[in-house]
């Protein structure tokens, strides 16, 4: 940006100022509070909370369930973000060319977003009930009745990574319709002439998507990743309403909740929160910066 005169940009700043002030207080003020607590020894409600430096940041890794919740959270994030992006993209791909009943399909796919995670959890807890065989219930029963018995599994009670993949399933169910809509809108925004030009050059349909359409979808991808990512890192209601506070499916947000509210250890809870923010700073912020920069170049 060139050195514009203040007269030109000041009104803009003033217009955004209320939002900046609100975000500064409610977001960054609380983030600051969070770091202050994370750097203190406020391990019980009755502690004063002295500054102790960064000891919580190393001590937290001695808590076995923290490391396992981080691992669970990562698996959940990968499956949820990846799954919702892929399914959303695939559905949009299927619907891109005119098809009968498109409006109804869209409505059905968007539908789960209208339901709160608390409610989603109740249904999926049932669908993913683990009993197999004769006592099979939920999806396992459905698989058995369809002759797909081999698909039966322990779902969220599994002791392998599939427990978190199972919990990501309802989240994918809930959000992929929205991602579908975003991608569909993105596809439709690509001028037909561009695609046609590629076809004339001999590209098949897949290559048209790969080399013509996809590169145009960066803003869509940004919005999708941010929406899915922030849901994923804070996922609580869904996991909690499906499997309670079981260690097997504990994610960082549940760990945080347990430390702060069940146990009264605000310092370790805040440390967990700080790590989530740091992870975002390391993985998401470079992406944001890259996005803003590359956008300017164009």
């Amino acid at each position: 940006m060139r050195h514009a005169r203040a007269r030109n940009w000041l009104p803009g700043l003033l217009l955004v100022a209320p939002s900046i002030i609100l975000v500064a207080i409610f977001v960054y003020g609380l983030i600051g509070w969070n770091f202050k607590v994370a750097l203190s020894d406020q391990h019980h409600d009755y502690d004063v909370g002295k500054f102790v430096g960064t000891e919580n940041f190393s001590n937290i890794w001695d808590i076995r369930v923290w490391s396992s919740s981080v691992k669970n959270g990562l698996i959940f994030t990968l499956v949820f973000v990846g799954g919702a992006l892929l399914l959303g993209f695939f559905l949009a791909f299927l619907m891109d060319k005119a098809i009968k009943g498109e409006g109804s399909f869209r409505a059905v796919y968007l539908f789960p977003m209208a339901i709160s995670f608390v409610a989603t959890g109740v249904v999926w807890k049932w669908l993913m009930a683990s009993p197999h065989g004769k006592d099979a219930s939920g999806l396992n029963r459905l698989f058995a009745d369809l002759g797909l018995g081999s698909l039966q599994n322990d779902w969220y009670n599994s002791t392998t990574w599939t427990n978190m993949a199972s919990l990501a399933l309802p989240a994918v169910w809930q959000m992929s319709g929205y991602i579908m809509a975003l991608f569909l809108a993105g596809f439709r925004g690509v001028p037909e002439e561009l695609r046609e030009a590629a076809r004339v050059d001999g590209a098949n349909e897949w290559k048209v998507y790969r080399y013509v359409v996809l590169p145009q979808l960066r803003p869509v991808l940004l919005t999708s990743v941010i929406i899915l990512g922030h849901i994923s890192l804070k996922i609580f209601d869904l996991v909690y309403s499906i499997n309670g506070k079981s260690v097997n499916t504990e994610v960082p947000a549940i760990f945080m909740w347990q430390r702060v509210y069940d146990r009264g250890d605000a310092a370790i809870g805040a440390t967990a929160g700080a790590y989530i923010l740091l992870a975002v700073a390391v993985f998401v912020v470079p992406y944001l910066v890259w996005f803003v920069r590359s956008e300017k170049k164009r």
Binding site: V23, L30, G229, K234, I276
Partner: peptide, 15 residues
Amino acid sequence: FTLFLFGMFIPYQAV
């Protein structure tokens, strides 16, 4: 803009 977006990730449960 970047700070706004980063703020979305504030861990609600902790605060």
